[in-house]
Simulated assay, not measured.
Amino acid sequence: MEITIKINRQFMSVEVSAEVADYLEQAKRNNRKLYRERQRYWDGRECDEYIISTEGRLPYCATPEELVCQRETLDEILAVLALCTDTQRERFLLHALYDFSYAEIAEMCGCTKSAVGKSINAVKNIFWKLWK
């Protein structure tokens, strides 16, 4: 049986037995299957139990208890923020959530750095009083 193979970027025709031809055809099919598997799984387009078991990692899911604790903590934080003035709440959230410096917040709000510091410290004091 005659097959064509590529050696050093050149195609050559070679006479081989039927067993060798079958072996090479099976190898081609296996390579195509591996290529498809890589396309499906390793670039993130699909996921199945085999990958999860071989990788040994599962996505993190919070337990129901953790979700309840998170919700209770959020409710407590929102209750404290409800006790603050609008200015205090705005300055505190800009600092805590968005990590702006006192100088940047002062520039945004049109006030001094010390006024921003006093507002943020007032909110922190309310937190400490309610959580102690």
Rank of each mutant, 00 (worst) to 15 (best):
K132A: 12
E65F: 12
E2Y: 10
P59L: 15
R32W: 07
Y41S: 07
K33G: 07
C69W: 12
E104Y: 02
S17L: 04
L81M: 13
A96F: 12
N8V: 01
R40M: 11
A82G: 05
E49W: 08
E76V: 00
P64D: 08
E2F: 00
L78K: 07
E65S: 14
T63L: 09
S119D: 15
R40G: 05
T112K: 01
Y98R: 14
T73D: 10
Y102C: 08
Y50K: 11
W128N: 13
T85K: 15
S114L: 08
P59Q: 14
F92L: 09
T4H: 03
G56M: 07
R9P: 00
W42T: 11
G117Y: 01
R9N: 04
A79E: 10
I77T: 13
R38K: 10
S17M: 01
W128I: 14
L58R: 13
T112V: 02
N121Q: 15
I51R: 09
L34V: 01
T54H: 14
F92P: 02
R9D: 04
Y35C: 06
E15A: 06
G117C: 08
E37I: 04
A18S: 03
F11L: 12
C111H: 00
K124L: 09
I105S: 02
R91V: 05
T85F: 00
S13E: 15
I3R: 02
G117S: 04
K28T: 01
I51K: 03
R45Y: 14
F127A: 12
G56I: 07
R89Q: 08
G117Q: 05
K6M: 11
R45N: 14
R57S: 13
L130C: 13
E72H: 03
R71H: 08
S13R: 15
H95Y: 14
E49H: 10
Y98M: 09
Y98G: 12
C109R: 01
